[in-house]
Nucleic acid binder design. Structure first.
Lengths: 337, 337
DNA sequence: TTGAAAGCGCTAACAA
DNA sequence: TTGTTAGCGCTTTCAA
C-alpha cells in the first residue's frame, strides 16, 4: 500500500497541490469550507506528511539530537525524561545518540549533523573529549549546540550544569565533620569538566581544614571494571588507607562496596563513602548510600528549553549562558552515623 | 557558512553533478582519476551529503527506530548496546524513541513512521498496549517491524524473546526447593506478554509441586512507587504472608527490600526473593539479590540483525520468526542459604 | 480564494 | 567515461 501524498489529495478533490498544502498548514488564504474538505479527506486517507520532503524544502527537521556517553546511567536516563518533557509540547522529536565514551564516536556523530539532520544538539561530552574542534565545526554550520552536565568550557554556547565544585566541597566537609582525615577522590577522567571541578571542590575542602591532599588518593578510574576493582582494593589496602571516599562515578558504587566487603572494612565505622549518583536503590544498600543527588530531570529540562529558545530565535539573554542547578547532599548510612 | 553540496563540487571541478554523485558512491562508470579528484575536493571542502535529499530520493533513510517503554531500566539500556553493536557496521543509525509505558505515546510514534521516517522498527511494547492496530497499520505501509522482549503475539513478524515461562518456572522451583510454600508473583501488567508468561511459569511450577496458587498472591503493580510500596507491604502483612516472591519487575527490587526492612522480615530466612533484573548492583545488596538475568545484549543484537536481514531483503527463514534466548537464574543471598 | 511553477539536494535513466 | 534531465514530496512565491 503506497503512501498518500499531497498530490493525491489534490487530485481526489480537484484542487491543486499548493491549495492542499496551504489548507493543511491552516493558511489564511484558503476558505474555511475548502480547508474542511481537505482536512476531512486527509484524515480519511490517513495522510501523513513526508518528513524528508518537508525538511529538505524548509531546512528544518523538528528533530533535536541528544548526544550522550551512555544510557546505562541514572543521571542520563533521568535527564532524557526532562528533555522530552520540555520539548514534546513544542513539537520537536528527541533523537538519542550514544558515544559510548568515545571521542571518535562523538566526532562522527556531530559530523553527521552538519548536513542539517537535526535542528539543534544537546551534548554531554565523552570522557575522552578534550578538544572542541568538532563542536566548533558544527557551530560554524549554524547548528545550535547546548551543553549539559559535561561541558567544554572553551565553547561559547549555553551550558547547563550543577554546582560540582560546591557539592564536592560540601560532601568532603561532611566527611571531615564525621571525623575523616584521609579522604580519597575517585574520578572518571582527567579532562572532564565535572570531574575536575569535583576534585577541586574536594581539594579545597581539604585545604580549608588543613588536611593533606595526597597524590595517591586522587584516582581516575578506567573503563574496565576488573581493573577498577583492583585499583580500589589497592587504595584500601594501603597502610595509611583513606577513611573517607568521594566517588564521582556512579558505577564505582558497586566496586567500593565489594572491595570493602572483601577487606572486611565496615561503613561507616572504618570508612565513609559519598557517591555522585541518582540511583534509586541507594536507600536499600547496606549501609544505605550517601549521595550527591544531581538535578538530572531539571538539568535536562533546562537544557532543552534553552535550545528551543535558541531555535525559535528568541535571543538568548546573558542569563541563559550558564545555568547552575544545585545538587543535593543526601547523608545516609555510608557516611552518617 | 553555507553547506557545500554536490553542485558546488561539480562546478568547482567543471564536472556535472551526476558525475560527482556517481564518483562519491564509487560507481564503476567513473574513471579512477576523476574519482580521486572528486574525493579530494569533497574531503577538502568537508562535503557532507544531505541526508534528507538522499532519503527523499531513494526512500531509504538508513535510520532504524528503537521504540522502548523507558530507558531507566537495566534491560533496555543494555539491549540498546546490543542493537548498536549489530547495526553500526551495516551503516544504520539508531534512533531511540520512548513511549513512557503509554499506548497513546507508542501509537503516535509509530504513526509518525508511516511516512518513511525510518527504514525499520525494533519494538518492545508499552505495558498499556493490548491491541496491535498501530503496528498493523505500519506494516501495511511496508515498514518492517521486529519485536523484542515485550511482543504482541498476534502480529506475524519476527520476535526475539527470552524463555520467560521456563525461567519463571525455574525460579519458582528453586524457591520451592529452598522450602517456600506460599509464593507470590509480582507483575507489571495484565496484558504484557512477558508478564503473563512469567506468571504462567510460576503457576505451573506451583501446580507441579501441588502447591496452591492464591489469587491474592498474584499481583500487578502500578506506575506509582508509593502505591506499590503499600501493595507489597500489605502483601507481607497478611497473616498467611508469602515466604517467597518472584518479582517480574526490576523496579520492585527496592520496594521489596524496603518493605522487608520495615517489617523486620529477613531474607532469606523469613522470605526469599528472586527478581527479573540485570542490575549490576544485585551483588552488593544485603543480602545479594537472586536474579533471573536476561540476555539483554544478545536479544538486542539478535533483534537488530533480524531487522537488518529483512531490510536487505534477504528472505527471512522460518527460524527467524521466533528467536528464544535463554535467561540465567543467578542464585544469590536473597533466595539461597 | 485558488493554481502554476520553481526548487530544496540528490540519484538514476538515458543520451552523448 | 561523462552529461542531461527528470523527479522524490513539499512549500512558496507569483500570477490568475
Amino acid at each position: 500500500m503506497k503512501n498518500v501524498n499531497i498530490r493525491e489529495l489534490a487530485r481526489e478533490l480537484n484542487l491543486s497541490p499548493s491549495t492542499v498544502s496551504k489548507a493543511l498548514r491552516d493558511s489564511y488564504e484558503i476558505s474555511a469550507a475548502t480547508k474542511e474538505r481537505i482536512r476531512a479527506l486527509a484524515e480519511k486517507l490517513n495522510y501523513i506528511p513526508n518528513a524528508y520532503a518537508g525538511s529538505l524544502r524548509g531546512r528544518k527537521s523538528k528533530n533535536i539530537a541528544v548526544v550522550l556517553p551512555e544510557v546505562a546511567d541514572s543521571f542520563f536516563s533521568i535527564a532524557i525524561n526532562g528533555i522530552e518533557a520540555a520539548v514534546k509540547p513544542k513539537g520537536y522529536h528527541v533523537i538519542i545518540y550514544l558515544t559510548h565514551e568515545s571521542y571518535a564516536g562523538e566526532a562522527a556523530i556531530l559530523k553527521d549533523f552538519q548536513s542539517g539532520r537535526v535542528d539543534g544538539v544537546l551534548l554531554s561530552v565523552s570522557r575522552e573529549t578534550t578538544t572542541a574542534a568538532h563542536v566548533q565545526e558544527l557551530l560554524e554550520k549554524e547548528v545550535p549546540v547546548v551543553f549539559f552536565d559535561r561541558v567544554l568550557e572553551a565553547v561559547p554556547v549555553p551550558k547547563i550544569v550543577t554546582d560540582d565544585f560546591e557539592s564536592a566541597y560540601r560532601a568532603t566537609t561532611h566527611l571531615i565533620e564525621q571525623g575523616c582525615r584521609r579522604i580519597a577522590y575517585l574520578g572518571l577522567s582527567e579532562s572532564l569538566s565535572i570531574c575536575n571541578r569535583r576534585r577541586e571542590g574536594c581539594e579545597q575542602a581539604l585545604e580549608d581544614h588543613s588536611l593533606p591532599c595526597l597524590r595517591r588518593n586522587m584516582l581516575t578510574c578506567s573503563t574496565d571494571a576488573t581493573q577498577n576493582f583492583r585499583m580500589v582494593k589497592k587504595l584500601l589496602q594501603h597502610p595509611e588507607r583513606p577513611d573517607g571516599i568521594i566517588a564521582s562515578v556512579e558505577k564505582l558504587t558497586a566496586t567500593v562496596y565489594q572491595a570493602c566487603q572483601q577487606l572486611a572494612l565496615h561503613m561507616p565505622e572504618d570508612i565513609r563513602l559519598v557517591c555522585f549518583s541518582n540511583l534509586e536503590i541507594a536507600t536499600i544498600l547496606q549501609p544505605s548510600l550517601s549521595t550527591v543527588t544531581q538535578p538530572a530531570f531539571d538539568m535536562g529540562k533546562a537544557a532543552a528549553e534553552t535550545l528551543v529558545k535558541w531555535l525559535e530565535k528568541r535571543t538568548l539573554t546573558a542569563k541563559d549562558v550558564r545555568i547552575v542547578i544545585p545538587s543535593e547532599l543526601m547523608v545516609r548510612g555510608s557516611s552518617g552515623k
